[in-house]
């Protein structure tokens, strides 16, 4: 009987090599503010959960479905953010980052990919 047959999920994960060849692109809705100390403050839109929107509407609040959040980058994050220009691939960003701070290449890869993944999770960047 096929009722209890395990369904195989189709994996959408890409390999490490493929991921390194991707180009990170900034979300056009993200606002970038350069602070006095040179660091970058990002203001990015976040979609509200439908049940929260419903609740707000019920209490007579606004019907907007997005709100904004802020993220302040440190020196390293700012440098990576500046390297995201729509041309540099992830591999190139890692190489430039490693060169600038004299990181071991593997170490730079770990920290840059972790940072890019976090930006991607927040919808601040995308990969193409």
């Amino acid at each position: 009987m096929a009722v209890f047959k395990r369904k195989h999920k189709v994996s959408s994960q890409i390999s490490r090599i493929e991921a390194l060849k991707c180009t990170p692109i900034k979300n056009v809705h993200v606002k970038e503010t350069r602070l006095e100390n040179g660091a970058v403050l990002l203001t990015y839109p976040v979609a509200m959960r439908p049940w929260i929107t419903g609740l707000i509407r019920r209490f007579g609040g606004h019907s907007e479905r997005t709100f904004t959040r802020k993220l302040q980058l440190d020196d390293l994050g700012t440098h990576v953010w500046d390297l995201i220009d729509g041309i540099n691939t992830v591999q190139k960003v890692i190489q430039r980052f490693a060169e600038k701070y004299q990181f071991h290449l593997k170490e730079a890869e770990v920290s840059v990919t972790r940072f890019l993944r976090e930006l991607g999770r927040r919808g601040i960047i995308g990969l193409q």
């Binding site: 440190d74 020196d75 390293l76 701070y101 004299q102 990181f103 071991h104 170490e107």
Partner: peptide
């Protein structure tokens, strides 16, 4: 590493 950032 990087010392330049840690000792900024």
């Amino acid at each position: 590493v990087p010392a330049s950032v840690l000792l900024h």
